[in-house]
Design a protein around this nucleic acid. Structure first.
Lengths: 282, 282
DNA sequence: AGTGTAGATGATTTAAACTCATCTACAAGT
DNA sequence: ACTTGTAGATGAGTTTAAATCATCTACACT
């Protein structure tokens, strides 16, 4: 380039502040540096950018035009830079209520302890806040989702509140909470497969469906009921003895947790988060 | 600032060209310099901007966003810079047909000889091409125009084609070409004052008016007629013996040539032009 | 396997950027 | 009118950032 960018930055600042001294303060330089930059700029461009009347400076017509463009240009660059820097020291995640409430939020503190220079924000809901560097953790169909985006293949099992007695699967009528996704494109929970694998016919099982797994799990815990749900969501509850299972065998499903374009987040924070979440889920 | 602008420029170029090598060529640097800049940028921002797959690089999501903003920002700055630089090595003038045809265009070559690094463009007409660095040389009323903008106070006299015999002012009927400005706010040519100063009553003078002085002057030259017009416009024609005057005395007028905001053009080229034009007019 | 290309890495050199010391011009106070 | 203080200009000297060089790795294409 013909002229140095730092000279332009010095000019931009001086033009905006109307003083070399103030520009120098803004850029943590000496007024001398600003003066050098600007006279260098002027001689390279063959123009006068500032009128000098003794110790007072004011922009020429040319100076005004250049100042307008440089201010706009640098402002644009700086705001993008700000955004990127913010993205570098915070991780923002959006996911389902269930994963948020049962996995992410309980582990949030631990994540921030391990990564003291990162803060973690969790949000749930539909709002596809596409504008910024938010990492979406979604539930999807393994046959549709890009394999490299998947962070957890989902298995299902039946769980109940901790301490309750094992149900007698074949004799008495049983109420089982399960999930009917709002999104009809998602595969249903693999209840039929589970019954088969565990040698049950399910004739005495009455289903009660919620549109979020979290609700069924909470209901089961509150009412000493049974819930057919994801092993991912229950992992922590099992470990803390809030729920139990009954020696039934889990089944794989066509569902998975995934992050769209997982490998395409360029921030250190997102890389840390993705490593961490894969680690705690597996 | 947190990050260096040159690093950003290197990134911008590499992002746009999709290759460190091409960016290096564009910026007249070595690929090594680009690599250093970008890794420096990445570590300062705590993000990854490029995926490296062996010897191929591609932008990350973060990289794409930053590249968009930096490209826009730098483009804006560079285009303004281009404009300023062009303005530094060329001077564009717009003025009346008369001044252009009788003064500026005949002297254009001389100006470019004296200033071999400057080119001069002359345009006439109403088109107020306000966009760029055009210097307007206008005719105005001395009582309205800012004094410091004035480059020539206008005097008037009667001229005729070179070699014609002096008219006998009082005996025979005389046709005199003169000017009626299109712009009615401008003072009329000071014919009454001129008659008085030269001891004439004008009873035998028939006026024929054009809306540009140039036309009257050309008509007078073509038909051995007489024209009452500006001494500025006729100066060169007198010197080259294309017209003459008849020992009548010129009169000052309320008209002047001026350049709006004369002292506010910051370009070297405009300063050179303004010096030169004041010089040849006085 | 062999060759050529793109980029990474670390040490060294170079040049740009910054500061310091000194000077001028103006403005404000006495 | 004579200080005093402030903003900027100027030129020489210093510092540090930026660029290069030499070397190395990984991949792609014969």
């Amino acid at each position: 380039m013909q002229v140095s960018l730092q000279a332009l930055k010095a000019f931009e600042s001086a033009a905006r502040r109307g003083s070399f001294k103030l520009a120098a303060e803004e850029l943590s330089l000496t007024p001398t540096a600003i003066s050098h930059h600007i006279s260098n700029l002027e001689s390279r461009l063959n123009v006068t950018l500032f009128h000098r009347k003794g110790r007072r400076v004011s922009l020429t017509g040319t100076g005004v035009k250049l100042a307008k463009a440089t201010s706009d240009g640098f402002r644009k660059i700086e705001s993008a830079l700000d955004e990127v820097m913010k993205a570098g020291c915070a991780v923002r995640v959006t996911t389902t209520s269930s994963l948020a409430a049962l996995v992410l939020i309980p582990s949030q503190h631990e994540f921030e302890q391990v990564n003291p220079d990162l803060s973690m924000e969790i949000s749930t809901g539909e709002s596809i806040d596409n504008q910024s560097y938010i990492i979406p953790v979604r539930v999807g169909d393994v046959s549709v989702v890009e394999g490299s985006d998947i962070i957890k293949y989902e298995s299902f099992n039946v769980f109940g509140a901790y301490g309750m007695t094992s149900p007698s699967w074949s004799n008495e009528p049983i109420t089982l909470f399960t999930t009917k996704w709002k999104n009809t494109l998602l595969p249903d929970p693999p209840l039929a497969t589970w019954l088969e694998k565990n040698g049950l016919d399910g004739a005495n099982i009455k289903l009660k469906k919620f549109d979020q797994e979290l609700f069924g799990i909470q209901k089961a815990m509150a009412e000493n009921g049974l819930v057919f749900c994801s092993t991912t969501l229950t992992k922590r509850l099992l470990k803390t003895n809030l729920i139990q299972h009954f020696n039934t065998r889990p089944v794989k499903s066509d569902l998975c947790y995934y992050v769209p374009n997982k490998d395409n987040f360029g921030t250190r924070s997102s890389a840390k988060f993705l490593d961490w979440i894969e680690d705690i889920l597996n």
